[in-house]
Each structure stands twice: as C-alpha cells, then as structure tokens.
C-alpha cells in the first residue's frame, strides 16, 4: 500500500528535508572541493615548507595511531563497564548513580576533557604533551559511548538465553562469556567503531594534550608529539594565511572520508547483523 499524506503532514516531511539537506550538501560540497587538492603526493608524502607543499602523511598516520591508542584503552575498560552494568550490577543506589554518571560523562564538552587530560596526564602523571596523553584523553572522552553501546547490546540479548544457560548449571560469568557476550558482539563492535569515529574527528582535546601542526616525521613513540588531521585542518584554516585553499579542502576531505568510512561500515554492518539475527 502506498502511503498518502495530508497537507500538514507534507509540511512535517519538509522539515525532515530541511534537517537532512545541510549535512548531506556539506559532505558533497567538501568532497567536490577536496578533489582538486587530492593527489598521491598529498596523501603519501611528508609535509614541507610548514605544510604549504608536500603531503599530510604524518597527520593521517597520527590520527590512525591516536585511534589505535585510544581503542587499546577504551575497549577493555568500556566493554568491561558495560558488562558490569548490564549483567552484574545489583539494582541499588550505586547503580543508579553509575547510570547518571554515564549520562553526564557523555555530555562533558570535549574541551573540558582536554583540560582534564592536560591536568592529569600531561602534568600530574608526567606524560607530557604526547600521543600517550592525547590517546588517554580521547579514551576518557569515548568511554561513555562504548559503555552505553555495550550495555544496550547486552540488553537486547533475550533474557531467555540467560535463563537457559543458568538452568544448565552455568555460572553467571560463564553465561556472560559464552552466551550473552557472543550474541552482543556485533552491537559492541559497531558502537565502538562509532565512538572511534568521534575520536578521529575531535580537535579540542588533542589541541590541548599534544597535537602539533608541523612535524615532518612520523611519531616514533607514544611519548612524542604528533600531527593529526583535525588539528591540521584547524591550523591550516585559521592560522596560516599562505595556505593554498585546495590543500585545506583536501585535508577536510581526507578527514571526513576517514570518519565517514568508519560510520558507514559500522552502520552497514549493524544492518546486516540485524537482518541475519533470528531472535
């Protein structure tokens, strides 16, 4: 049956169009403008002349390193906390407090995470302005996202699976590790991928905790400073009058591409799993 809409309903649908148009147009426009500046050299070469010529390889790799470091920390911690909340936390005031903390944590501005990371990791723990400090800060920022994704994925596993397992003489931990977690795996991974795409694009945190604009070498260790795409874009767009426009657009295009690839693959994967799943 074809849907038919009344006039006021069509008005509502036009609001939806209005909401979707700007982001879609933005993505399209950036990719079109970026095309002029993209070349093999731009992606695979070291920068030269303070970034005016050469490529942005260290920024791309810096962002990938950052994601690697962040996920190394946030994945075990976030999945662990999500498992605790969904499967083990007794229903009491403490759990209530935890859930409130989670919502609040998700709403803390990234610039505040930046200040926190600076105060704790850079200064107090003495990690300095470095890849390590920035990764840890981003891990803190993405923690609530991973926890929430894990918790939701576990909640969507039917309770009857848990019951069946317990009734077969499984301990609670055996039930979690052999039944519920495997069922929730794809939900957790897509949630983590989405969280990592947030980390890939975040600028305010890394600007405070260790990103550098011009470092014509690859990061050698987790304690060195690093280039990263979002920070590179920010500086190129605002602080360098001599920067050729197509290079800035190309940087924006590469960043957007990386972020969207993660988003799209997470979304497609989730839809595929949703279709395959039989419960």
């Amino acid at each position: 049956m074809r849907q038919s809409y009344t006039l006021p309903e069509l008005f509502l649908l036009s609001a939806l169009g209005l909401a979707l148009l700007p982001p879609l147009a933005a993505v399209l426009y950036i990719f079109v403008r970026a095309a002029a500046g993209i070349s093999l050299e731009f992606i695979f070469a070291m920068p030269a002349q303070r970034g005016i010529t050469g490529g942005i390889l260290p920024a791309i790799l810096g962002t990938l390193w950052l994601l690697f470091g962040t996920s190394l920390v946030v994945l075990p911690l976030g999945v662990g906390a999500g498992v605790y909340l969904a499967e083990f936390a007794p229903r009491n005031r403490l759990k209530h407090l935890l859930e409130v903390a989670l919502i609040n944590l998700a709403g803390v501005p990234s610039v505040v995470f930046g200040l926190f990371g600076y105060s704790l990791f850079v200064l107090t723990l003495g990690f300095g302005s470095s890849l390590l400090s920035a990764s840890l800060t981003l891990a803190a920022m993405t923690l609530p996202l991973v926890v929430t994704a894990t918790r939701e994925a576990l909640h969507s596993v039917p309770g009857s699976f848990r019951e069946a397992s317990l009734a077969l003489g499984a301990t609670r931990w055996q039930t979690v590790s052999t039944v519920t977690l495997p069922c929730a795996r794809s939900g957790i991974l897509t949630g983590t991928l989405l969280a990592m795409s947030r980390a890939a694009g975040d600028t305010a945190t890394i600007l405070i905790t260790g990103a550098a604009f011009f470092l014509p070498r690859l990061p050698t260790s987790f304690t060195s400073r690093f280039m990263a795409l979002p920070y590179h874009l920010y500086i190129s767009a605002t602080q360098l009058p001599g920067m050729p426009a197509e290079r800035i657009w190309a940087t924006a295009g590469v960043l957007l591409f990386i972020v969207l690839i993660m988003q799209v693959s997470a979304t497609l994967w989730r839809e595929r799993e949703r279709r395959l799943k039989k419960w």
Partner: peptide
C-alpha cells in the same frame, strides 16, 4: 534515514567550523 542522521553526527566539528568559516 536514522542511519543517515547518525552518520551526520559523525561529521567532525572542525569540519563544520571550516564550512562555517568559508561558506
């Protein structure tokens, strides 16, 4: 469309800032 919205949430704020600045 929900997926599309979710993806637009991923557009980094520095990219929005750049578009705001130039467009």
């Amino acid at each position: 469309l929900r997926s599309v919205f979710e993806m637009t949430a991923g557009i980094p704020s520095v990219v929005w800032g750049f578009l705001g600045l130039t467009v």
